[in-house]
Design a protein around this nucleic acid. Sequence first.
DNA 1: AGAGAATTCCAAAGCGCTTTGGCTATTTTG
DNA 2: CAAAATAGCCAAAGCGCTTTGGAATTCTCT
Lengths: 340, 340
Amino acid sequence: MNLKQLSHMLALSQTTVSRALNGYPEVNEETRRRVVDAAKRHGYRPNPSARRLATGKSGMIGYVLPTGSAVDIDPHFVEFLSGLGDYARSHDLDLVLSPADADDQETTYRRIVANRQVDAVYISSPKPRDRRIALVNALGIPFIVHGRGENLDFDYPYLDIDNEGAFHEAARLLVQLGHRRLALINGDNRETFAIHRERGVRRALAASGLTLDERHICSVAMTEENGYRATRRLLEQDDAPTAIACSSLIMALGVVRAVRDLGRAIPGDVSLIAHDDVFPWLRPENFSVPLSTTRSSIRLAGARIAERLAARISGLEEGARGEVWPVDLVVRGSVAGAPG
Amino acid sequence: MNLKQLSHMLALSQTTVSRALNGYPEVNEETRRRVVDAAKRHGYRPNPSARRLATGKSGMIGYVLPTGSAVDIDPHFVEFLSGLGDYARSHDLDLVLSPADADDQETTYRRIVANRQVDAVYISSPKPRDRRIALVNALGIPFIVHGRGENLDFDYPYLDIDNEGAFHEAARLLVQLGHRRLALINGDNRETFAIHRERGVRRALAASGLTLDERHICSVAMTEENGYRATRRLLEQDDAPTAIACSSLIMALGVVRAVRDLGRAIPGDVSLIAHDDVFPWLRPENFSVPLSTTRSSIRLAGARIAERLAARISGLEEGARGEVWPVDLVVRGSVAGAPG
DNA sequence: AGAGAATTCCAAAGCGCTTTGGCTATTTTG
DNA sequence: CAAAATAGCCAAAGCGCTTTGGAATTCTCT
């Protein structure tokens, strides 16, 4: 059933039927009812390819997916996706993932914009002067950054959590508990979130006249194994830290294992706070010693980003609004006063 | 730059330019060279919306993503996606995720097929008589199932791993080591993979005149917490099992924690074998006691499915070929002879 | 009553591509 | 050498929608 048939059936022009269906004002309410009714009865659905060709709108939001045999997609992505999907479903949006060589995403961005394949895109895991942000900004497609860049000479819309604040709070708590030597097991420090977290820790330490020893800071891919290795290296130093802030629950698994392997205890010998993105399948309260966390649901962020993208597409949101979510500090058994 | 402009520039008709570019035979090689050359020089790229409207082909593969606030997307998905993306990238395929109410995916399947939004789809986590398989089969869109149905009265193309064989081997090893009471901590037993794994365990036990006690079998969502709970329940029974087969590494984390909480040891008191889908961020050899696993890279499966979908789209693959991959049994420290 | 405004509808022109059917040279064949 | 086949190209007709630019009718107001 296409527009031609439907309009013929109603003895109306395609114009009128189209307008009736798309809510244009210049059509009699009575007529509109007839049209809408008939459309529903016959299950008419406008062909999206045709509509897209005519309007340039696709009803899809895009994401450029960095791939390559050496590239691992972050497991956080799936949680983010859950949230995005929740919103997208109820608003008839589809999501298109365009795989791109991790070292050349620009080509892909240009392509999907030039081809009008999607109405908006989002960007995740931004680095401080992320080229992608400037690129999509210049290309003029609606977008939102999940996270933030830094030192960019223009504004842009983003949604981020207060990483600095979160790790500031975490570190401040540890300092208050008497810890003097903190360590930070961080994610890839080319990414902004990691930089912000480090900044938060440093600021908290500085407030008490302390500093973050360079040897007490690790920046690695967020795997269990790296968490383990980092912790061993930290705890086998002369001036081993007595408290660790850790950027992910998965790494925290490795931290816990390493501490145990070394015959130390949490929180007796070392306190631990990790960031929790809220996975359904791994919960901090279920660690052998319940884990204190800075918590922020990445899933909710996904839903919010979808919502804002939809708003931007339809022109309801404009400008370069940045949105920063506060992060909860949830204290559980893994922190205690500094040992002896 | 569109076709009209390009052909005008070359003093050729749109027909000829189009044919030259798409490799049709009825165009002089010399002319084709000129066209291809000019197209490249001017960076001409056919507008996909127009092409799609004309041909009905979209160059995308689809996946219906079950969503809902109570629905958690499996973290395996992201690994699968990595593989799919690897292949898709090098073949200019995009992936469109269509979020659907988990309880009504049919509507979405019908929509994406009717709208010709994608050229092919894949289906994951199938149940034995999965409605989706019959549906897409009837709708006539190219598809491949990742996993298998069961008791379906028609054939269809799929890619699966030998779940039954894998768990058969695992259980057989445990029996050979003297274990008489095995337990199975399985995924949702409405899904085929879980059924197959249980079948494998039962078959191995039966071969030695043993059976799988109903109280020794758990079927739960694959989270760390559920692994923990299941293990506690198992080990606190009178006739506690001395060996556990477990359907995921994530659950295995919970198993290990529970065993430790109960003051038991792996493999001294209980042997453990888990299935490993090969996550980059959690590796069995890094468990406190290195974990024996049945291993199969879900990422490779993703790449293979993309490859086969592409083949089906272009007509290179036809019919209902089922492909079953063998699974490696990797023995590490977590298994030992049955205690006492 | 008649001019002007508003309402309601339509024909036709895109959007940019593929494909059908046909037309002219050139080559091959009996 | 005429007839038939082939090569190479083109004009135009879709694909199914939106939107422009009227046209016809009805309403409003002096």
